[in-house]
């Protein structure tokens, strides 16, 4: 088990290295010199050189990569070209919005999908199944940012229950949660639709298995069979999807933050892009990739725990 864990960790580290190289190389391809761009047309060559030194733009390609990657490891994400402050500080401000938003949305996703999937699978072919399948079919087709706009229109413009956007900060947790509620709902709905359908499919597959018949033959009711035997076996495909969904939620959050004017990592990336503050884009992207890879790793661990067959294989 320990050895399997080590192998996984090594492959995790490798993925991160490859990902960082890809991101670094891609952003190096951007034409133009950020220092010259920042100082404008009339800048003196020696001022530009000084700024380049300050921004860590000196040295060869490999040298700069090592400096950046090494910095990331120690929490030094570089210095923003625009604001001249450490990127880490910017990130620290913004992550307080994005991380709770993603988690909130994930929570909603599971809370909606679990009962809906269970209901549809156990009432297969009945009205409630058709209802869930129809609603989720629609839920998948709705772009989350459009859904977000509709929510804004309904609750902020028409009903005036909430403000259309912005974030009051965590000093008032109630208000902060309220501000995150509409974005989280908008993010969660399509993902919950997907998850509910996956859960239904996985449950229906497991309900067809021989061991379900065995459980019924020993006198378990249909409901007990579903909960005790089918649900845990259906967990593996569901966990896999849930892991993938985290990545979608992160990406979705970037767009949704724009709809609601939330000062999160997504806004930060967009500001970085429009202001050509590439070090911000580079470091924040890397951070997001790290989050996704780490979650994938956690999911793999989770289903090793859920399935003893994998535990055995992992131990070998």
């Amino acid at each position: 088990m320990a050895r399997a864990l080590l192998t996984r960790l090594i492959s995790l580290a490798l993925s991160l290295v490859v990902a960082s190289v890809v991101i670094f190389v891609m952003l190096q391809a951007v034409p133009g010199d950020p220092a010259a761009f920042m100082l404008g047309l009339n800048a003196q060559p020696d001022t530009i050189a000084a700024l380049r030194a300050e921004l860590g733009l000196q040295g060869g390609f490999v040298q700069r990569y090592i400096a950046w990657a090494g910095g990331m490891l120690t929490g030094d994400f570089g210095t923003s070209y625009t604001y001249r402050v450490p990127v880490a500080d910017l990130v620290a401000d913004r992550i307080g919005v994005s991380a709770p938003l993603a988690l909130y949305a994930l929570l909603l996703t599971v809370l909606i999908a679990l009962p809906a999937g269970l209901l549809a699978a156990t009432r297969r072919g009945q009205a409630s199944d058709w209802g869930v399948m129809g609603a989720t079919q629609l839920g998948i087709a709705v772009p989350n940012f459009w859904f977000a706009m509709l929510l804004v229109f309904l609750f902020a413009v028409k009903l005036r229950w909430v403000s259309a956007g912005g974030f009051p900060g965590w000093s008032d947790p109630g208000a902060a949660l309220l501000a995150l509620t509409l974005p989280a709902v908008a993010l969660a709905l399509p993902q919950a639709s997907i998850l509910a359908r996956v859960l239904r499919g996985a449950l229906i597959d497991t309900l067809d298995q021989d061991y379900i018949r065995t459980a019924r033959a020993k006198g378990l009711s249909r409901r007990a069979t579903t909960i005790r035997h089918a649900l845990r076996n259906a967990a593996i495909p569901v966990l896999t999807i849930l892991g993938l969904q985290f990545s979608f939620l992160l990406a979705g959050a970037i767009i949704i933050e724009n709809v609601f004017f939330l000062p999160g990592l997504g806004r930060l990336i967009f500001q970085g892009i429009t202001q050509r503050d590439l070090i911000v884009v580079q470091s924040v992207t890397m951070l997001l990739v790290f989050a996704v890879i780490a979650v994938t790793f956690a999911v793999e661990l989770a289903y090793t725990l859920a399935d003893p067959r994998l535990r055995r294989r992992a131990a070998r």
């Binding site: 990545s247 979608f248 992207t285 996704v292």
Partner: peptide
């Protein structure tokens, strides 16, 4: 797959 697709 490990990259968040929309981010990339």
């Amino acid at each position: 797959f490990a990259f968040p697709s929309l981010v990339i």
